[in-house]
């Protein structure tokens, strides 16, 4: 069915990609730290080519995150990187920095572009602006609520992608904040401060919330203390015509991501089969709940919040 929304998931390895393809994901987002922001694992150019061949054989799609804030020195490498992605046959690249637009126009004019500026992709008019610059899809900010998202859909001249599950980034600095803090304390840390380290922050007044924090070559990243889970109300986004649902797989086990993909797969298929009689089935979430880190809540993120300023 061509009008079914796409179910996209970020993956950390070929092995995870295979298992999540099996579980029912339609599309995969991969990348490497030098060009892409906060990926769950590294996919070299060769890995991307292998993954592209694998998913295309199943009629699925692969996109590559090239959404870092680029520095001058990375600009020199970008044309070769984009050319490699073109040759690998990827279905599109995500960008945030306008420098990527210029390179794609030059090196791979046929390549689909998805605009993903994370927390700053907040309105339909700006999504359409990037559409006029060549983007075919906008990845909407996780800080938008349900009314804002559904209200935007009529005005969008590009496809919309909405994150429906997993954690989100809530702070990104170019500084090495963990390392600086440990040095300040006179206790330099041994080993790497990356995703695998299991570092987290607890704010003085919120003792029951853990905020994962990690460092990589792009700086310091702080993640949300809850996982978004919109499955119960996914039909609202399907009714509104959102074209792509994203599951963020970062900092999760493959088993967990498999359970999440299966749950959303069931909901999307059930809705497509008969939208009028569609009903959310609590059981779809059983396995997700069973595997959910008990120290992290499943919640609706900003979908039902009203923000002030």
């Amino acid at each position: 069915m061509s009008n079914k929304p796409e179910l996209l998931v970020t993956v950390s390895s070929m092995e995870e990609l295979r298992r999540l393809a099996e579980a029912g994901a339609d599309a995969f987002l991969v990348g490497e730290e030098r060009y892409g922001m906060r990926m769950p694992g590294e996919f070299t150019r060769e890995d991307v080519a292998e993954a592209a061949a694998y998913v295309h054989a199943q009629g699925k799609r692969i996109y590559v995150a090239v959404n870092n804030l680029m520095t001058n020195d990375v600009l020199d490498e970008l044309p070769a990187y984009i050319a490699a992605l073109r040759d690998a046959g990827v279905d599109g690249v995500e960008f945030g920095d306008p420098s990527v637009l210029a390179v794609v126009r030059e090196v791979a004019p046929e390549m689909a572009l998805h605009w993903n500026a994370e927390m700053t992709s907040t309105n339909s008019s700006t999504a359409n602006y990037w559409g006029r610059k060549g983007a075919t899809r906008a990845v909407l900010a996780r800080e938008l609520n349900m009314d804002e998202i559904t209200g935007m859909m009529d005005k969008m001249q590009v496809e919309a992608q909405v994150q429906v599950h997993g954690m989100t980034n809530i702070y990104h600095s170019k500084r090495q904040l963990v390392q600086s803090y440990m040095e300040h304390q006179g206790r330099p840390v041994s080993g790497d401060l990356g995703l695998q380290r299991g570092l987290f922050l607890i704010e003085a007044e919120r003792r029951d919330e853990k905020f994962p924090i990690y460092e990589d070559s792009n700086g310091t990243h702080i993640m949300s203390s809850e996982d978004i889970c919109i499955l119960e109300d996914l039909h609202l986004l399907m009714e509104a015509g959102v074209q792509s649902f994203k599951i963020e797989g970062i900092l999760k086990s493959t088993a967990y991501n498999e359970a999440v993909v299966r749950a959303y797969r069931q909901a999307i298929d059930a809705y497509a089969a008969d939208p009028d009689r569609y009903e959310f089935d609590e059981e779809w979430l059983d396995e997700v709940r069973r595997l959910q880190d008990p120290e992290r809540e499943l919640g609706f993120g900003f979908f039902y919040k009203e923000q002030v300023y």
Partner: peptide
């Protein structure tokens, strides 16, 4: 201390955008 605009700590802690 973040990249300007790339911080929603305020949104998460206090619902202030």
């Amino acid at each position: 201390s973040s990249f300007s605009g790339r911080c929603v700590l305020s949104n998460h802690f206090t619902d202030r955008d």
